[in-house]
């Protein structure tokens, strides 16, 4: 990747910008202030009650990880959605396309530079997250799984951004398309499942009322599988596995209702990560294809 000219240029330019250090500073300050206060309050409580609430440390870990995840979902599209369209607006895309670089070189260079920046942000916050390990927290495997989830989500969001950027002419429109699509994936699939679940509950209650049938638990049917596309659900599922009772609100069971276990629901995390990774590859391939067409349309 170091030999990719686009990547090298992006890194050079970004290293000169004040934006990244500022984002790192603000993000880590928020995270540190909250974590330290939370730790202080927990320890103070121990002094008064002589009872150690380990759950509060896990909640602190969940908070830090969630904040990081949300930031990743918010920043990664911003880093990629203007990358190719920005070149087009600067009138430099045509110059790049007349060089020996392939469309794939340009797209991967842009994506990797965004990954780098995101990685820096995530890594810089690690010391603060590690604070939660002072009194015990998730295990190494759990942390590794969380990192895999972060990487997949970054690729997924970045892939959407770079595809939108390659397809559209203006960065503003590309931004709107990227965030719109992400909202559809994250909020849309959740809302659809909630809607279907409520419909199912209503139907069951009606049946129970009319025929005196035995009350069963509602489910969302096939709509639940749409959540495989939702990185937030995957993240919540990972977190709920690490913090028992700490993050059940977003766990899959809240959407599955009484659905019996099957292979997909049994391996939800692995399958959803694979689906999102596969989609990321498709998005990047789409961006490369679109740029290739740009070269000769």
């Amino acid at each position: 990747m170091k030999n990719n000219p686009v990547y090298r240029r992006e890194v050079t330019v970004r290293s000169r910008s004040f934006r990244l250090p500022l984002v790192i500073l603000i993000f880590n300050t928020i995270l540190a202030v909250f974590s330290l206060f939370s730790m202080y309050s927990t320890v103070a409580q121990v002094r008064v009650s002589a009872q150690v609430s380990y759950e509060s440390f896990l909640q602190l870990y969940a908070f830090a990880a969630t904040l990081e995840f949300l930031l990743l979902m918010f920043i990664m599209p911003a880093l990629t959605s203007g990358s190719v369209s920005g070149e087009r607006e600067r009138q430099t895309l045509e110059l790049l396309l007349t060089t020996k670089m392939t469309a794939a070189d340009i797209v991967t260079g842009k994506l990797m530079a965004a990954f780098d920046q995101m990685g820096l942000l995530v890594m810089s916050s690690f010391p603060i997250i590690l604070l939660t390990f002072v009194y015990g927290s998730a295990d190494i495997g759990g942390i590794a799984l969380l990192l895999v989830c972060f990487a997949t989500t970054a690729a997924f969001c970045g892939g959407i951004g770079i595809l939108a950027s390659s397809v559209t002419r203006r960065s503003t429109f590309s931004n709107v398309c990227t965030y719109g699509f992400l909202l559809l994936i994250v909020i849309g699939t959740l809302m659809l499942n909630q809607f279907v679940l409520q419909l199912s509950e209503m139907r069951i209650s009606e049946a129970a009322y009319q025929f005196g049938a035995e009350q069963t638990v509602a489910d969302t049917g096939a709509a639940v599988y749409l959540l495989l596309l939702n990185p937030f659900v995957t993240f919540a599922e990972i977190l709920s596995g690490q913090i028992s009772g700490g993050s059940r609100l977003f766990s899959l069971s809240a959407f599955l209702g009484a659905r019996p276990e099957n292979f997909v629901t049994g391996h939800w995390t692995a399958i959803s990560l694979c689906v999102q990774a596969a989609l990321s590859v498709l998005f990047v391939r789409g961006a490369v294809r679109s740029l290739g067409k740009n070269r000769r349309t």
Partner: peptide
């Protein structure tokens, strides 16, 4: 190719701009 619009990376130095395109070739 020299297009009608310059196509410049304003936040690069002149030497860096040249070296960027050198590596692109």
């Amino acid at each position: 190719y020299v297009p009608d619009e310059f196509g410049m990376y304003d936040n690069l130095k002149v030497r860096e701009y040249m070296e960027f395109f050198a590596s692109a070739y």
